[in-house]
Design a protein around this nucleic acid. Structure first.
Length: 675
RNA sequence: GGCGGUGUAGCUCAGCGGUAGAGCACGCGGCUCAUAACCGCGGAGUCCCCGGUUCGAAUCCGGGCACCGCUACCA
């Protein structure tokens, strides 16, 4: 006989280079809610989070402070370890990639891959850019103008020996996986992206770095001159935490990692790291001949003023101040309820406040308070032990609402599940209005049965609030005289959501109850603004906002529809931001690594530059030399097939798509302004 | 440039061939057991544009436009 279903849910491991922000908080809260839901449903749940602690950035940051990388990691990891309990995160384990068990897991995975697919890992040459100033590697697309993106140091092209994973050999099997298991990548739109990425061909993956350049990492098994590079190290946490590679045996791994047919493994990740989880990770596992996770879910981002939060913009929302203002329960409810998982959402304090007031204060909080007061007054605080009295409307509503709740969580749509809960409360409010249990004269029996019914329904509601708001759920549970916490009822194999009627008759209810007081918008938002000087939550979190930029961006967003820019019109000032200049072509030759591109050397009067232009099909290099053309002089440099282009030449596109170069009429010296 | 997605009420979004919907916000009425709560009613939308298929299209097809994502020998 099969045991209960197992449910293994993970967050990504967070890089200890950064303090926790709303994004980390979001992923972790969603994972927690799912874990708690599955526990209520009687599933055998294991919930993992942790930290990623290796790599150049940590090494560098530690060096700057004169401490060891491990000391730095130990320090930063505390921010996460303290935050999660404050948010009522119920993780069963917390893994750090600097732990011994993780090293063992990585080594075991290597060994297993080499055993099952001997040619999957091979030695080759890594070609990339190395910045000696930062002591960091940068991929092709990040190097700008021959300089590193962080500090603007010059970078040098490096070629060194590296170990590779033969990712290219797995494309067909991955495509087969996406097609035969559509739930492997969710939501669907992300699966399409991942699929087309893989269909476009995969390049082998460099999975090591020379120890002389990066020393803060796990030793590469079998090659002490190298360390294991980022993704192979990080992804392995999902099995190393379960004891994979432990010589003493790994019961958790056996149980949760899909060795059983009824096991679900869900990796919850932000959409920015979806590819690593949906492409690299299954490929590693395939090479090792291990079972794959059930689902990789790529959720969306919280935006501010329609743009991504980032440290450089200084608009990152930090969980600390939010917890102070709203409390863990309200913040969790907001994160789960406001946007469907997978969508992006706009974060604002005002949105949290509106959500809290309408869902929690007016609706759920008020309902509990209302019923507790009714029982206190009408029944002297004891829930009458009588038969419930369901009218048709309530009976239908409760059935429907419970189905939607379960379906919502089971399909990774917590927002839908929580919507079912406020609908449940609505249905109960309407029931009370229909039945009027406060009009007792001559209808005591009826009123008692009505109150018994509502309290029974509130027990269902309180139980179901637990995944989203464990604190409030416990308070409500106690107020109904049911015990300390619905969580104490949890047991593997016992589906609490299937309980038909909680025996509330005879319970003493405790009031008055005011769990979610209504928040005064002006007061709370006013204080938040006053407290940090108008920059939102950021300054309070120690990250000063940039008031000018912030305000400007917001105004633009708000005003856009009725302004000229709505019609694609720009102002003269905007036009003048583009610096157009004439330039003389000094040299032209084919791009060494592309057949549609030409490499040009141009004279801008005061300087010479290299341009890469997509005109090889229309112009021969020798026809260009000596000609005067028009270029955008202040365009951000970019690399095209390995060559930096420091500007863009202007050309008219003919009806057939062929470019026709713009040239000034008459003779002007190179570098002349164009307007 | 290629692929995918989105465009519906002030806001967030559901509907995906049969008389335009929900929540929030807003207005009016009711009630007073409850947290200015709750209940009821209401306003407003060429369902992005043009064309087609159909007895009938927000929904299907074709063509545009705009925005978003992924990707590229775009700069």
């Amino acid at each position: 006989m099969a045991g209960p279903r197992t449910f293994y849910v993970t967050t990504p491991i967070y890089y200890v280079n950064d303090l926790p922000h709303i994004g980390h908080t979001y992923t972790t809260v969603v994972a927690d809610a799912l874990a708690r839901f599955h526990r209520l449903a009687g599933d055998d749940v294991y919930f993992l989070t942790g930290t990623d602690e290796h790599g150049q950035k940590i090494e560098r940051a530690a060096k700057a402070r004169g401490i060891s990388p491990k000391e730095l990691a130990d320090e930063v990891v505390e921010n996460y370890r303290k935050l999660w309990p404050a948010l009522a995160i119920s993780n069963d384990d917390f893994i750090r990639t600097t732990e011994e068990r993780h090293r063992r897991g990585v080594e075991a995975l290597f060994a297993r891959i080499r055993e099952r697919t001997p040619d999957a890992i091979y030695k080759g040459k890594y070609v990339g850019w190395y910045c000696t100033g930062c002591e960091s590697f940068y991929p092709e697309n990040q190097v700008v103008d021959g300089k590193c993106p962080e500090q603007g140091h010059p970078v040098e092209r490096v070629e060194e020996e590296s170990w590779f994973f033969r990712l290219s050999a797995f494309a067909d099997r991955l495509l087969e996986l996406y097609d035969s298991h559509p739930e492997f990548v969710l939501p669907e739109t992300r699966r399409n992206e991942v699929r087309s990425f893989v269909a476009g061909g995969l390049r082998d993956l460099s999975i090591s770095r020379s120890r002389s350049k990066v020393s803060w990492g796990l030793p590469f098994p079998g090659d002490p001159d190298h360390v294991v590079y980022v993704w192979f190290d990080a992804l392995t946490n999902y099995v190393s935490a379960l004891g994979f590679g432990d010589p003493e045996g790994a019961p958790l791994y056996e149980k949760y990692w899909r060795e059983a047919p009824d096991a679900t493994v869900l990796h919850l990740v932000g959409k920015d790291i979806l590819r690593f989880h949906a492409v690299y990770w299954p490929a590693f596992l395939m090479a090792a001949g291990l079972p794959l996770p059930t689902t990789i879910f790529g959720h969306g981002w919280w935006l501010r003023d329609e743009s991504k939060m980032s440290k450089t913009r200084g608009n990152v929302a930090r969980p600390g101040p939010l917890l102070e203002d709203f409390g863990a329960d309200a913040l969790r409810w907001f994160l789960l309820r406001e946007i469907p998982l997978g969508h992006d959402g706009n974060y604002s304090d005002e949105a949290v406040l509106d959500r809290t007031n309408s869902d929690l204060a007016n609706n759920i909080g008020n309902l509990f308070s209302r019923v507790v007061a009714l029982v206190a007054k009408g029944e002297k605080g004891t829930v009458p032990a009588v038969e419930p009295l369901y009218d048709d409307e309530l009976g239908e509503a409760t059935r429907e609402v419970r189905e939607r709740y379960r379906a919502g969580f089971e399909s990774c749509d917590p927002a839908a599940a929580l919507r079912a809960l406020t609908d449940h409360a609505d249905a109960l409010n309407r029931y009370l209005v229909r039945q009027e249990p406060w009009r007792r004269k001559g209808r005591e029996e009826h009123c008692s049965r009505v109150l018994r019914t509502v309290v029974g329904e509130l027990a269902h509601l309180a139980l179901r609030l637990h995944p989203a708001m464990p604190g409030a759920a416990a308070t409500f549970w106690q107020a109904l005289g049911l015990g300390e916490d619905p969580a104490t009822e949890i047991a593997a194999g016992k589906d609490l959501l299937a309980v038909d009627d909680w025996a509330v008759g005879g319970n003493s209810v405790q009031g008055p109850l005011k769990v979610f007081p209504r928040l005064d918008k002006k007061k709370v938002l006013g204080e938040a603004i006053a407290a940090d000087g108008g920059g939102g939550r950021d300054a309070a979190a120690g990250r000063p906002a940039k008031p000018g930029k912030e305000a400007g961006a917001k105004k633009k967003a708000d005003a856009a529809p009725d302004e000229d820019e709505g019609a694609g019109i720009i102002t003269i000032d905007e036009f003048f931001r583009v610096k157009l200049r004439t330039a003389k072509v000094l040299k032209a030759e084919p791009h060494p690594n592309a057949d549609k591109l030409l490499r040009l050397e141009i004279d801008l009067g005061d300087e010479k530059r290299q341009l890469v232009a997509g005109i090889a099909k229309a112009y021969r290099p020798e026809d260009l030399v000596g000609r005067t053309i028009v270029v955008v002089a202040n365009l951000k440099p970019a690399k095209l097939r390995g060559l930096v282009s420091e500007g863009m030449l202007l050309a008219a596109t003919g009806p057939d798509g062929v470019p026709h170069l713009l040239m000034p009429d008459g003779d002007v010296p190179p570098g002349s302004p164009v307007s």
